[in-house]
């Protein structure tokens, strides 16, 4: 009886030990967390390149597709005779220099899917900060080309607006609690829409979240005064069927929008429908 029990114990322990040793013997890859970059206002291009390479190989998760050259274009090596990404990025889109193209390809990847590949690239602004994205651009430029990203591109740093050539409000997010204009004061209503995070709850032109009322035809059923009041005092009139999410929309836009921005947004929405 004792021997039987010992044999069973040996079989059990031997089996789990084998699996544990095997799993420990293969290459150990950890999924890293993208760390905030604090590069300072006088960060050099070389520092950005180094930070970008670290992200590319690690937390950015880029090598899962771009390192293999089967799921996505190979960026590290030659791609169909066009060279590394730094050598070919300046000619990918007419009228766009390498830096602009790479930045837009990272935050709006669906617009730049290379022919022959599946549209699987995620919007990197959902996982990386603006500074991290600029660091990535610098690294990619440096592969077969010259990195041109500077501290000036990053602008206000981690929490600031996107750089001069990047899309405004790439980082998305909730509107500021008060003070300071959204989208760096831009009066482009779509900049304001994105920077204010409106699309997280409202649908416009077929895109956006399902939480609040769709605004595709808001102009056909509501006048400008109603729209303005709804932006400044969202709790004043809760749309029918959305009572349970009343109070979700922040009542802080009066403090975060300039008068010109508010009117630009009202104009745009009143024109819907």
């Amino acid at each position: 009886m004792l021997m039987t029990n010992l044999k069973i114990l040996a079989v059990v322990l031997g089996t789990v030990t084998l699996y544990t040793v095997l799993a420990s013997a293969i290459p150990q890859v950890e999924s890293e967390v993208p760390q905030e970059l604090d590069l300072g206002a006088d960060v050099s291009t070389e520092e950005l390149v180094a930070a970008g390479e670290e992200l590319y190989q690690g937390a950015g998760g880029c090598v899962a597709c771009h390192g293999l050259g089967t799921r996505a274009p190979n960026l590290l090596a030659d791609e169909a005779g066009t060279g590394q990404i730094g050598a070919r990025c300046g000619t990918r889109e007419p009228g766009k220099d390498c830096k602009t193209y790479l930045h837009e390809a990272l935050v709006q990847p669906m617009e730049y899917i290379v022919e022959g590949y599946e549209p699987i690239m995620p919007d990197m602004s959902r996982t990386l900060s603006p500074t991290q994205i600029w660091a990535m651009v610098a690294y990619l430029e440096s592969l077969g080309g010259t990195a041109t990203v500077t501290a000036a591109d990053i602008g206000g740093g981690e929490g600031g607006a996107a750089g001069a050539e990047g899309p405004a409000g790439a980082g998305g997010g909730a509107p500021p609690a008060g003070g300071g204009a959204l989208a760096a004061g831009s009066t482009d209503p779509m900049d304001i829409w994105r920077a204010g995070g409106c699309g997280a709850c409202h649908q416009l032109d077929g895109e956006g979240g399902p939480i609040g009322p769709a605004l595709d035809d808001i102009g056909a059923t509501r006048d400008r005064d109603y729209i303005r009041r709804a932006i400044l005092d969202p709790g004043a009139d809760i749309a029918e069927g959305y009572e349970q999410v009343g109070g979700v929309m922040p009542p802080t836009f009066g403090g975060s929008l300039t008068a010109a921005q508010l009117e630009a947004l009202v104009d745009m929405l009143a024109g819907e429908g």
Binding site: Y19, T20, L22, A23, S24, I26, Q28, V29, E30, S31
Partner: peptide, 9 residues
């Protein structure tokens, strides 16, 4: 950070 397989094992 999600650990590597050795630790998970």
């Amino acid at each position: 950070a999600t650990p590597a397989l050795g630790y998970a094992a």
